[in-house]
Design a protein around this nucleic acid. Structure first.
Length: 876
RNA sequence: GCGGACGUGGCGAAACUGGUAGACGCAAGGGACUUAAAAUCCCUCGGGCAACCCCCGUGCGGGUUCGAUCCCCGCCGUCCGCACCA
């Protein structure tokens, strides 16, 4: 007995069990079919999934299911980015051990993901906090160390003196620790670094090959790497009692051509010379401290005035030592870029001009725009950074900028200052090495020991993993590993003497920099990866995740890929061939009169002709409907996936997430919208029932001849299939859904008008084809409903394993087409013509048409533009 | 400040990157069925006009073109990213 209504709450768990039992989503490394690796960014196990996860994983699942139907051996794994601070925060607040907390969250979220009906290979599940995972990460660390890709050096960190911990930049709010509220100190600590700069050039060049990445992300990475070509040049310091004889200051410049426009040297407040001067000059020290306090956030810098402190030092101009330039400590030169020193050329750099205007420094123009008389060049409030010809520059006069740059570089390279060449061409990168040391417990231990005799000694590979101790307490501030009574005490692998374990753990970005590789062979207990298996599966064909990872995660993964290749773990250029960044899930906000936020479950919406209004469920008072914002706990505009799935089913949630907006844009979650999806699902269920009642049996042969109605049905089916084929691979899910809607509308109309006497073999076949086509077409997006319909249509097998019914595009091609006719560019008529009509026929037919004649109204026709199979434009 | 993206009905959006602007969905209005409601089905739904096969309409102003949401120039507005990068 076929129920009138489809019951998602019964069907969904049923099919999930069937898929699970038959292990149909597990992929084999030995499968000979062409591979397709689809991956969504794995989640942090924060507690429960949110609607953003639902959207992200729904998208990936559509691709996985579709590619499977197209005959690919699909790898679609899932795991957990399981190390990180929230687990330690929870430990401090509730006393639960980070591992307990994390694994409990994983269990909850796994259950939630399973209730979504995702076609995931759970046999490959990994959690980065598991020793079976981080063992291999430690091994990679050691191999990178051996390959010279790891460095240990001093770096400045934000130090919270109360919590006794290093803070990330985003944990410093107004100069204070986010948790303790203590004033944050800058400390120099010896830290571990991955030498990502080794690959700076390659990481930049590799971007050109990533043509299936969003241009926006490539641009962001390009800017982050920040390659620039320029010249390092040294200025001799004029003799001064405060500095040693034969001192020099080295600057980096991308505009050596403007050297005759130089009017000062600007040094970072952390520049060694400034630091040493500040030791004996309290005014300078005060200035430096103030600059440091201002921070480096864009918002601050935007509004900050250029400031300087004249040190009294002078340097000689390299081409005329009678010209002495003042040396300033400045707030706009950064120590960690270039050499921490610049020469300022006010005429051709806006910042330098602002600075010069403030301190009354000269501003000689040295580049003249080609259409301006050199004598009339004046520098006002705007620096000129365009192209032109050199002026006021002695031996450079008349040269182009490029030639002048080259000439200056050439002269300084071949000349010595204090026994070394005065200039050196250099390619400079903004990219800095990746500091991975974290003074925390819940992370991957860095596998080295410190021995008094042998210094830093790697833990031998056979002794891995270095496992985190279980018995730690979070009651006192600081790193639990560091104050653990026994854990850090060990013996030196080299000399056997007493040694101390490294108590820093790795940045959690390390964990996610190679998980995509581990998924290919997660059972491998000996090696992180098997290069042969890597070559089989990687690169990831389609990677899907949030734009917030556009720079760091993706760049680190690209670095790791290069490191893994250098250490023989993977023969691979780039990890992610296709990248897609999906938009957020947003929702209306609701705010009561007293300013407090209300959750969507606490209000009722009334829609009438004069608009939508919200009322509180508790007392019926009217609630203001606020702006649409990213779902967040603070604004209380979240919806819980469990509740949605419980009420409407996973299929409805998935479908709605994909339906309304382009996938890269934000989607507005609305109750009305998901109700619309629920209606659509019932419509599909009824339509399949209607089609089934007239459809031929499973596997019927196609009849030779098709009548008019059958052809209409077939055209609708194949048209929809063709459009979905085109759109699904481009991830245009919203359009796929529109095509599905159109097909349902069309089939519903046609079926409704069929007289039972009309049904012959041809229509029966067409209805079977239509029903199965529709089910296949919605299956990647609403797999449970599709399975139920598939089974209802008499299939023993699963739609999840069925082959895609490729669209027959010859059926869609019409022999007779309706051509829109424009008169002077405005549509005035339609003319029905054979598709292959020649231009003369088209012309005569069009001009003979009544509506066309009426529109022409006797005026002479100047021209008839015919675009075949598209449009005709009559010009009068 | 620099860089990037975008601007189409009441709303989310389509439009094969130069060819019928508004597919599809949401909301709304009208009707059928029903004792009633829900569900379902049918119709209307950018603006103007009594009405159309008419006129206007893709942020604003120009331009190129037989033809512009799409290309070019100049404004206005919104969103995102950032690093005062020498």
């Amino acid at each position: 007995m076929r129920p009138d209504r489809y019951n998602a709450r019964e069907s969904e768990p049923h099919w999930q069990r069937v898929w699970d039992e038959r292990k149909i989503f597990e992929s084999s490394n030995d499968d000979a079919r062409p591979k397709y690796y689809v991956l969504e960014m794995f989640p942090y196990p924060s507690g429960r999934i949110h609607m953003g996860h639902v959207r992200n994983y729904a998208m990936g699942d559509v691709v996985a299911r579709y590619m499977r139907a197209r005959g690919y051996n699909v790898l679609h794994p899932m795991g957990w980015d399981a190390f990180g601070m929230p687990a330690e925060n929870a430990a401090m607040q509730s006393g639960s051990h980070p591992a307990t907390w994390t694994y409990a969250n994983i269990d909850t979220m796994r259950r939630q993901l399973k209730s979504m009906g995702l076609s995931l290979d759970w046999s490959r599940e990994i959690a980065t906090c598991d020793p079976s995972y981080y063992k291999h990460q430690q091994r990679i660390f050691l191999d990178f160390l051996k390959a010279g890709l790891v460095d240990r050096k001093t770096a400045r960190v934000n130090w919270d003196p109360v919590d006794q911990t290093v803070l990330a930049n985003e944990q410093v709010i107004d100069g204070r620790g986010w948790r303790s509220g203590a004033l944050v100190e800058q400390r120099d600590l010896t830290q571990w670094f991955f030498k990502i700069t080794t690959f700076a050039e390659d990481l930049l060049q590799g971007l050109d090959t990533l043509d299936q990445w969003p241009e926006k992300v490539r641009l962001m990475q390009r800017n982050w790497i920040g390659r620039s070509e320029g010249l390092r040049m040294r200025f001799a310091v004029a003799s001064d009692p405060r500095v040693p004889a034969a001192s020099d200051i080295e600057v980096f410049t991308t505009r050596p051509d403007t050297i005759f426009g130089a009017s000062f040297l600007g040094l970072a407040v952390d520049h060694p010379i400034i630091r040493s001067l500040a030791e004996k000059n309290s005014d300078l020290e005060k200035f430096c401290d103030e600059c440091r306090r201002m921070g480096t956030s864009a918002a601050v810098l935007e509004t900050t005035e250029k400031q300087g402190f004249d040190t009294g030092l002078k340097v000689a101009h390299p081409f005329d030592d009678s010209i002495l330039l003042p040396v300033y400590a400045t707030n706009f030169v950064l120590m960690d870029y270039g050499t921490g020193a610049i020469f300022g050329c006010p005429a051709h750099d806006q910042r330098d001009l602002d600075f010069a205007n403030k301190y009354g420094l000269s501003k000689t123009p040295v580049v003249c725009p080609s259409d301006v008389d050199p004598a009339s060049v004046v520098i006002g409030d705007d620096a000129f950074d365009g192209d032109g010809v050199m002026i006021n520059s002695r031996f450079l006069d008349g040269m182009s900028i490029a030639d002048a740059m080259d000439e200056v570089a050439r002269r300084l390279e071949s000349r010595e200052l204090f026994g070394r060449p005065q200039g050196r061409r250099q390619v400079n990168f903004r990219l800095r090495d990746w500091g991975v040391s974290r003074q925390r417990y819940w992370g991957c231990p860095i596998p080295v020991v410190h021995c008094e005799k042998c210094d830093v000694v790697p833990v031998p590979a056979v002794e891995l993993p270095v496992i985190l101790p279980q018995d730690v307490d979070f009651k006192t501030p600081g790193n639990p590993l560091d104050r653990h009574p026994t854990w850090k005490h060990t013996t030196c692998p080299t000399c056997g003497g007493p040694a101390r374990r490294e108590t820093d753990t790795m940045d959690t970005f390390v964990d996610s920099s190679w998980y995509f590789a581990r998924f290919t062979d997660p059972w491998n207990t000996e090696e992180p990866t098997d290069p042969a298996v890597i070559s089989k599966w990687l690169p990831v064909d389609q990677y899907i995740g949030g734009i917030e990872h556009a720079i760091l995660h993706l760049l680190y993964s690209r670095f790791f890929t290069r490191g893994l290749r250098a250490t023989g773990h993977a023969d691979l250029d780039e990890p992610f061939k296709g990248l897609f960044t999906q938009g957020m899930v947003v929702h209306e906000t609701y705010r009561s009169g007293d300013g407090s936020w209300l959750a969507p479950t606490e209000i009722r919406i009334d829609s009438t002709a004069d608009g939508r209004k919200a009322f509180a469920l508790t007392d019926g008072s009217e609630i203001e409907i606020g702006s649409i914002e990213k779902m967040s706990k603070s604004k209380r505009n979240t919806v819980d996936p469990d509740e949605i799935i419980g009420t409407f089913g996973a299929d409805a949630a998935r479908w709605f997430m994909l339906s309304d907006s382009p996938p890269e844009g934000d989607v507005i979650w609305s109750e009305e919208g998901v109700q619309g999806v629920a209606r659509f699902m019932q419509r599909v269920w009824r339509l399949i029932g209607d089609l089934k009642s007239v459809a031929a049996p499973v596997g019927s042969m196609a009849p030779v001849h098709f009548g008019e109605t059958a052809i209409t049905v077939r055209k609708a089916t194949h048209n929809a299939l063709a459009k979905v084929e085109d759109d699904i691979v481009r991830l245009r899910f919203n359009r796929c859904i529109a095509h599905a809607n159109e097909l349902v509308n069309k089939l519903g109309q046609t079926i409704g008008s069929i007289e039972s006497a009309e049904i012959g073999d041809d229509l029966a076949y067409a209805c079977r084809e239509a029903a199965e086509g529709l089910v296949m077409l919605v299956a990647p997006m609403m797999p449970h409903l599709a399975e139920t319909c598939w089974s209802d249509l008499g299939h023993e097998d699963l739609v999840s394993q069925a082959r895609w019914p490729e669209a027959d595009r010859s059926l869609i091609r019409e022999d007779v087409i309706t051509l829109p006719i424009q008169i002077n560019g405005k549509k005035r008529a339609d003319v029905v013509l054979p598709r292959d009509a020649d231009e003369t026929t088209i012309r005569t037919t069009v001009l003979a048409d009544d509506s066309v004649q009426k529109a022409i109204d006797g005026r002479p026709v100047k021209r008839v533009v015919i675009v075949r199979e598209r449009i005709v434009n009559v010009v009068i």
